[in-house]
Simulated assay, not measured.
Amino acid sequence: MMTLTRKIKTIKHIVFIALLIFFVQKSNAALPEDIAPKSSPEQALQYLSSIKELRQSKWWPNVAPERLLQNLKTFTTQPFAFYEGKTTNFCAYSALTYIPLSYDPLGFARFMVELYRNGQANIGKTQLRPSKPVRMEAGLLRYKGSLDINPAGQMWFLALADHFKGYLNFFNRRFQKGDENTFWASTNFAKFNRMLRRLFNGNVKAQGADLFRPSIRDLPAHLEAQMQKGLVFLYLNNKKLYRKSHTESLISTPTHYVLLTDIRRLPDGNIQFEYWDYGARAVQQLSPDFLKNIIYGVSLWIPKASK
């Protein structure tokens, strides 16, 4: 009986390792091969598993400690599962979250645990000290899809929106219930690039603006070349992207951020456009002109070499 139990435990251990390797390979697909992550998912999981008792935080009363740790373990092995939720304006924060989850999962896990324990924590060049209304709301968001059962994501998104401000947030700077769906949580292009620079140790090269598209002659070739250097984020008009008929319109404004995971030209001249959006990979085939029409911003993040 004891031998059978040991065999079952061994099989479970092997399956776990196999799944971990599979998820890591899938999740690191957007990182260029010559960029070595600062830490590994295995290190993050070992750290999270070493926390035998995490007390209920007085700062985050609606976030259960066991749910927080489970969320962080899931996102360590499945970065692409990190989802901004339905009807929210969290897409910018969701897109940039791929950086810590793929490049330094151990550092992100430690940051989140510290934020939970102390109500504040440092990440990159920034100290996040969420306001009381934000801390009281985390864990209570509902009707947002999988974000409902992801209090770790709620903490992170709300803290970022509370700290970083741009001109879109000018008339709504203090959180009130329901503001995750309003301009309080919105992100303009300059704010997005400022977050990349302040939160993560890397160089950021940005092209484009909120109202004007970047002047790039061969956009597909340019994006493909940028992906060889680092992580590429796109600021685009997703209303056009998700129309059943990809046609021109008089009104065109960017509203959405995605992580580019692959792009290539097809034999028929169209572009296969793959990106991370709403917690999943999406694939579309678009004409070069339409692709150029929907993209307003291109942000390249390249990690700085460790000293």
Score class of each variant (00 low, 15 high):
Lys7Phe: 05
Ile14Glu: 14
Ile14Gly: 08
Phe16Leu: 12
Phe16Asn: 10
Phe16Met: 09
Phe23Cys: 15
Ser27Thr: 09
Ile35Trp: 10
Ile51His: 09
Arg55Trp: 11
Arg67Asn: 08
Leu68Cys: 07
Leu69Pro: 13
Phe75Ser: 01
Gln78Leu: 13
Gln78Asp: 11
Pro79Tyr: 05
Phe82Met: 02
Ala109Pro: 04
Arg117Phe: 08
Thr126Pro: 05
Gln127Lys: 11
Gln127Asn: 12
Gln127Trp: 01
Leu128Lys: 00
Arg129Met: 12
Arg142Thr: 13
Asp148Glu: 14
Ile149Gly: 15
Ile149Asp: 15
Ala152Trp: 05
Tyr167Lys: 15
Tyr167Ala: 13
Asn169Met: 02
Phe171Pro: 01
Phe175Leu: 03
Phe175Ala: 02
Lys177Pro: 09
Asn181Phe: 05
Asn193Phe: 00
Leu199Asp: 00
Leu199Gly: 00
Ala221Cys: 14
Ala225Trp: 02
Met227Ala: 06
Gly230Gln: 10
Leu231Thr: 00
Val232Gly: 09
Leu234Met: 06
Tyr235Ala: 01
Leu241Phe: 03
Thr247Lys: 10
Thr247Pro: 01
Leu259Thr: 02
Asp262Ala: 14
Asp262Gln: 14
Ile263Phe: 11
Gly269Asn: 13
Asp277Phe: 01
Asp277Val: 05
Pro288Ser: 10
Tyr296Arg: 08
Gly297Pro: 11
Val298His: 04
